[in-house]
Design a protein around this nucleic acid. Structure first.
Lengths: 233, 233
DNA sequence: CCATAAAATTAATCAATTGTTAAGATGTAT
DNA sequence: ATACATCTTAACAATTGATTAATTTTATGG
C-alpha cells in the first residue's frame, strides 16, 4: 500500500497558534506547512498540494474567506479539503454565507484531541487518499501545461508530439520545468546538472538553452539577466 | 517543546536601567544580555546574535546612533531588529534624522507592560519570533499592502499587475519593502546591494530610485534628505 | 527668504551578460 | 573503424542594464 502522510497546510497570522497546531499535527504523523496570510496560503497550497487546509477566518490582508474563494478557483486544489478556523464567539453572520466553500468548521481554542478527530473524520469521510490524484513530490512524470516530461522513459511530450532530447538538454529542461516560474541561477544549474567538480565554460549553458528554445519554442524559457533562467508556464 | 527563546541585547550605560529591564524581560522568558557602551554592544552582538537590540541613544563614548551604524554593517546581524531607547524630552532634532537603521523607538521611562507589548509587536511584525522553527519552503515572498515581491520568481506584483525589474532595481526594492517605513541610509543601501568593495558614484542610487518610482508610483519611496530612503506602506 | 548642499532628472556612455554560430573534441553504436 | 550524435569551446554580436555626467529642482538651516 502506498502510505503517504496526509499533508496539511495551516493558515493563521498568529505564530503561537501555528506553532501549537503544527506541533500537535506533526506528532500524529501529518506533514505540515504554514502560511501567515491569504497570499502566502495560495502560493504554498499550489506547491505543497495539501490534502487539507486549515484556514483562519480572520486575518489581516486577504482574509480566510477571500483566500478560500481564491483557492477554490485553482484546478489542482479541486479535491483539497478546506476547514475554517473561527474564534469562539466570532461574528458568525458574515461567515455563514461562506459555508459553501468550507468543508468544516473548527472553533478556537481547540483541544488537540478534538482537532485530530475532526481532521481524521474529514479525511476519512471524503476518502482523500493522497495517492489518488495528487502528484507526489518524487514523481517521475512532470507535467506543466502542454509539456510533459517522463524521467523514466527519458522523453518529452509537447502537444502530443514526442521528442527525445540529449541528456544535458533533458536534465536542464527537467530542472526548469520542475518548478515553473522559479528562477534558477546559473550556479544552481551548474550545481544540479554538472555537479561541483566539473568545470565548464560560461557559454555552455547558453548553448543548451539555445537548443532547448529551438525545440520547445523560443518564449518558454525566460532569461533574467544577471540572475538566471526560468521556465514560464 | 523545543522553543528557542528570543534573545535580547540591552545596551545602556546606566546600571539601574539595565537591571530593571533585564529583570522584566527575563521574567517573560527572554534571554537577556547587557552591554554598557557601543563597543561592548558590538562584540556582544556578534557572539550573542540577538533577535533584538535595545539601544540607548545617549551614551558616553560611541553613542547609540554610531553603534547602530556599525551594527548594521555586520552581515550576521542583518536580520537583527534594533530599537532605540530615548529619554523623554531628549533633543529630538539629532535623533530624528537617525530614524535610519532603527526599527522602533521607545521612550524612557517605560512601563514594563508597554515595553513588552512593543517588543512582542516588533518580533511578530518581522517574523523573528521563536516560532520561526516552522519549516518554510524555499519561497521568499514579501508582501506589503498592494505590493508583493517574489524573490524566487524574481517578479513584483502590484495590484495584480506583474512587473519584471532589472536586478539592481529589484534588489533595492526588496530591501526597502522588507522593512516598510524604516529608513535605510545610503551607506546601508550600498553595503547591502553593492557590497563593500564595489565603488560607484553618488548618483547611482538616485537613478535606480528614479526608475523604481516610475514603475511603482512616485509616492511610494520617500526621501529623507541627508539620511536616506524609506518605503511607505 | 536666501544660500547652500542634497537630491532629482535626463540623456549619453560604458560595462556586463547573454545570444549566436560554427568548429572541434569526445563519445557511442554499428 | 566509421559514422553519427552530443557536448564544449571560442569568437564575436547583440542586448540589456548600470553608471556617469551635466543640469535643474528641492529642501533646510541660518
Amino acid at each position: 500500500m502506498n502510505i503517504q502522510e496526509p499533508r496539511i497546510l495551516l493558515v493563521d497570522d498568529e505564530k503561537d497558534i501555528i506553532e501549537f497546531l503544527s506541533y500537535n499535527l506533526k506528532k500524529e504523523g501529518f506533514l505540515v506547512e504554514a502560511a501567515a496570510n491569504g497570499k502566502e496560503a495560495i502560493s504554498k497550497a499550489v506547491s505543497f498540494k495539501p490534502h487539507l487546509i486549515l484556514l483562519d477566518v480572520m486575518m489581516p490582508g486577504m482574509d480566510g474567506m477571500e483566500a478560500c474563494d481564491e483557492l477554490r478557483k485553482i484546478p489542482e486544489l479541486q479535491k483539497t479539503l478546506i476547514a475554517f478556523l473561527t474564534a469562539r464567539g466570532e461574528d458568525y453572520s458574515q461567515i455563514a454565507g461562506f459555508e459553501a466553500g468550507a468543508d468544516d468548521y473548527i472553533t478556537k481554542p481547540v483541544k488537540p484531541k478534538v482537532l485530530l478527530s475532526r481532521i481524521k473524520a474529514l479525511l476519512k469521510r471524503y476518502g482523500q487518499s493522497p495517492a489518488e490524484n495528487i502528484p507526489t513530490s518524487d514523481e517521475q512524470i512532470i507535467t506543466h501545461n502542454d509539456i510533459t516530461i517522463d524521467k523514466n522513459k527519458y522523453i518529452v511530450i509537447q502537444n502530443g508530439r514526442q521528442m527525445e532530447l540529449p541528456r544535458k538538454e533533458f536534465e536542464l529542461l527537467s530542472l526548469l520545468v520542475s518548478k515553473p516560474d522559479r528562477v534558477f541561477t546559473r550556479d544552481e544549474i551548474f550545481h544540479q546538472i554538472w555537479g561541483d567538480d566539473v568545470i565548464v565554460g560560461d557559454r555552455t549553458i547558453d548553448v543548451h538553452i539555445r537548443k532547448l528554445r529551438e525545440k520547445i519554442g523560443e518564449d518558454r524559457i525566460k532569461t533574467i539577466k544577471g540572475v538566471g533562467y526560468k521556465f514560464e508556464g
